[in-house]
Simulated assay, not measured.
Amino acid sequence: MMLEEFEKRTGYFPTMKEYEVIERAYIHFEGDKDAFCKAYKKNEGEIARMIQHEANMQTINEQNEIEKLVESYKFRIAELEKALEREQEWKRYEDTDNVSQADYIKLRTASGTRALSDEEAKELLFDWFGFAKEKIKIYHCVPVYEVNRHRQLRKVGELDRFPLYNATDWNYIRFDCGRMCYELKDDELRPYLH
């Protein structure tokens, strides 16, 4: 029996899931289309509940299967990501044109070194190099990168890099002015490369 025939004979418009159950019930029914539809209408409440229950159970079973499949895919994806990480051989990368973390730590841990406030750092950059204070943006960290064997970079975190001052020839400030990026290290102004 076609869905349209069932709808026309009963006046009930089932979902596709419900109709699949109705069709199975019709196949096992002893009688023709008209007799089945008449029995359905006569006993609509009980049959409808039974059909709805079976359709709901079918939907729940399908959802459980889908959830199991999704979990297995998530597990497989995690395995593949781990294998890809190993294959790519990611290693810590530090641009040699920028100030190294080791040099920064040496300055930070030296006796007499003090952290500068943003205002103090801007004042120093204005006095020494003439940068407009209102255009200076002071940074307190730098990105940490890793490089793989295919020379691809990825950002994996950040390191604290507060402005520091120990002496006129031993200091550090990471800043931008306008569209230019700079590091001041030991009284030497240098471009900061991203």
Rank of each mutant, 00 (worst) to 15 (best):
E65G: 15
W170C: 13
A132Q: 12
E65A: 13
E44R: 10
K8P: 02
K155S: 06
A167P: 05
K17N: 15
V99E: 06
G178Q: 10
K41L: 09
Q88T: 11
H150P: 00
I66G: 09
R49S: 11
V144I: 14
E146L: 05
F162A: 07
A110V: 12
Q152F: 08
M180G: 08
D169P: 02
E81V: 11
D103Y: 02
Y145A: 06
R49L: 10
R149C: 13
E158Y: 08
R114C: 08
P163F: 04
Q152C: 10
R179L: 12
T10G: 04
I66Q: 14
N171W: 00
Q88P: 06
D118K: 05
K82R: 13
A110K: 07
E146F: 02
R86P: 01
G45D: 14
V147M: 07
D176W: 10
L164G: 03
V156Y: 01
D32Y: 06
E20P: 00
R114F: 03
D127A: 10
L125D: 02
V156Q: 05
E67V: 08
Y26D: 07
D169G: 08
N148Q: 10
E5S: 14
M1L: 12
A48C: 09
A132E: 11
K135A: 11
Q58L: 08
R179D: 13
V70G: 05
L193A: 15
E7Y: 05
A48T: 09
I66P: 05
E5Q: 15
I77W: 09
Y192E: 07
D95M: 03
E4Q: 13
E20L: 09
M2A: 12
V99I: 09
D103V: 05
I27D: 08
E71G: 11
E119P: 00
Y165S: 02
F6G: 01
N98S: 09
G157P: 07
F6S: 02
N148P: 11
A48M: 10
L159W: 06
I47Q: 00
D176A: 12
L69I: 08
V70C: 11
L84N: 15
K68R: 15
Y182K: 11
C177K: 01
I173R: 00
D97L: 12
A35H: 08
E46A: 15
R190A: 13
L80W: 06
H28R: 15
L84K: 14
L153P: 05
A132D: 14
D32P: 03
E158M: 04
F36G: 00
T109H: 09
L69Y: 11
E85V: 12
S72R: 13
Y93N: 07
Y12F: 12
Q63K: 08
F29G: 07
I77M: 15
R154W: 07
S117Y: 07
D169C: 09
D97A: 15
F36S: 04
R9I: 03
L116P: 01
M50W: 02
V144Y: 01
G112H: 04
I51M: 05
L189P: 02
L125V: 05
K91T: 14
T10K: 04
E120G: 01
R49N: 11
L3R: 15
N64R: 12
L189N: 00
L159I: 08
R151H: 12
F129D: 04
E79G: 07
L125W: 01
Y40W: 13
G178F: 07
Q58M: 14
A83G: 06
C181A: 15
E62C: 03
R149F: 01
E123F: 08
T113F: 02
T96L: 09
S117N: 07
